[in-house]
């Protein structure tokens, strides 16, 4: 039992990054923070969210790859990072397919629908269509 496990592991050679590289990343992150604040006040319509998230992903990637050394880590650690990100993606996207598709197929009208309509009329429930129109309003 002198040698162990996965030989592609990161530790065998400890990576030391140069201070100037860390400074470069620091600079890039600060610039991107400024950029995301500035761009939030530009009217890009629906693209505002995309740009904001794109900048956030870029910043996150820089932190993960360089500050957290994943660029220099072994396969297994890259695998764990991939696992975490993809599991999160699964949770977000599969939850969204429910909410995103509620209007695509409507079940046949039932007495419950009539009751629900009554609640809507009396102001206790929101109209099913209301959500879609909010989305459009944001894009002004």
């Amino acid at each position: 039992m002198s040698s162990h496990g996965d030989h592609t592991n990161p530790g065998h050679q400890v990576h030391v990054s140069s201070t100037s590289m860390y400074l470069t990343i620091l600079g890039a992150l600060i610039v991107l923070t400024g950029l995301t604040v500035w761009v939030a006040f530009q009217d890009l319509g629906w693209a505002n969210d995309i740009v904001a998230l794109g900048i956030a992903f870029t910043k996150a990637t820089l932190v993960v790859l360089f500050f957290m050394h994943v660029k220099y880590s072994g396969r297994i650690i890259k695998f764990v990072v991939l696992c975490a990100v993809s599991w999160l993606f699964v949770m977000l996207s599969l939850t969204y397919i429910d909410y995103g598709s509620r209007d695509i197929i409507k079940p046949a009208a039932t007495p419950v629908d009539a009751e629900y309509q009554d609640l809507v009329d009396r102001g206790y429930a929101k109209k099913a269509k209301a959500s879609a129109s909010h989305g459009k309003e944001t894009g002004h």
Binding site: L94, I97, D98, S101, R102, I104, K106, P107
Partner: peptide, 16 residues
């Protein structure tokens, strides 16, 4: 990726 089979009767989207 299968969890919503517990929720078929909750009023979730029929498509989902």
């Amino acid at each position: 990726i299968v969890w919503a089979h517990h929720m078929f009767t909750t009023g979730m989207s029929a498509y989902a």
